[in-house]
């Protein structure tokens, strides 16, 4: 089972992207998936978590995600010990930052992407969730980019979907080239 934890702030789309990844893997892929937010009141600007579980078998586990293969940070002001909590030994952290040198830790695989600049270029707004999904797809090799494109097409209006698909493709390409 692949377990992904998304860190963001209310309004940045961290749960939306957790859900889109699950939709991509299940409805538009051949896997089963589960997606859920950190449960509780919803408040704009407050730290929130999103979770995605993906597996080839039906997922019946309803306990909280305590060990992650991937941690994705949409907003670097949330950086702290809780980002690395529960990261599996070979796990990967993906962070949205323009200063990757700040995030070098021994024995932790951290991949940086300046998703905010990319999002401003492609969407005209600093909404970074789809860019970070593109980075995750490139880093992860557990899901096809086309499945994610289909999930976006299913969930957004056509013109917005197209912009996000282009943004995701660019982020994907940058991480693949950087590898």
């Amino acid at each position: 089972m692949i377990e992904v934890r998304w860190h963001g702030r209310g309004g940045q789309g961290s749960f939306t992207i957790a859900r889109l990844l699950g939709m991509a893997a299940s409805v538009h892929g051949n896997a089963y998936a589960q997606a859920f937010p950190s449960f509780g009141p919803e408040r704009r600007g407050a730290p929130v978590l999103g979770f995605t579980r993906i597996d080839e078998n039906k997922i019946t586990d309803r306990s909280e995600v305590d060990a992650c293969d991937y941690v994705v940070v949409l907003d670097e002001t949330l950086w702290g010990d809780n980002v690395l909590n529960g990261l599996k030994p070979n796990g990967i952290v993906l962070i949205n930052t323009e200063t990757p040198e700040k995030y070098k830790i021994d024995n932790v695989n951290i991949i940086a992407l300046d998703a905010t600049s990319l999002a401003l270029e492609y969407l005209g707004r600093p909404i970074t969730n789809t860019a970070m999904m593109g980075a995750l797809v490139a880093a992860g090799d557990f899901i096809q980019l086309e499945s994610c494109n289909n999930a976006i097409r299913e969930s957004m209006k056509e013109n917005i979907a197209n912009k996000n698909i282009a943004l995701m493709a660019k982020a994907y390409e940058m991480i693949k080239e950087g590898k």
Partner: peptide, 12 residues
């Protein structure tokens, strides 16, 4: 159905 664990969890 269990609040949040079922009401707010997405699945196929």
């Amino acid at each position: 159905l269990d609040g949040f664990v079922l009401t707010h969890t997405y699945e196929l």
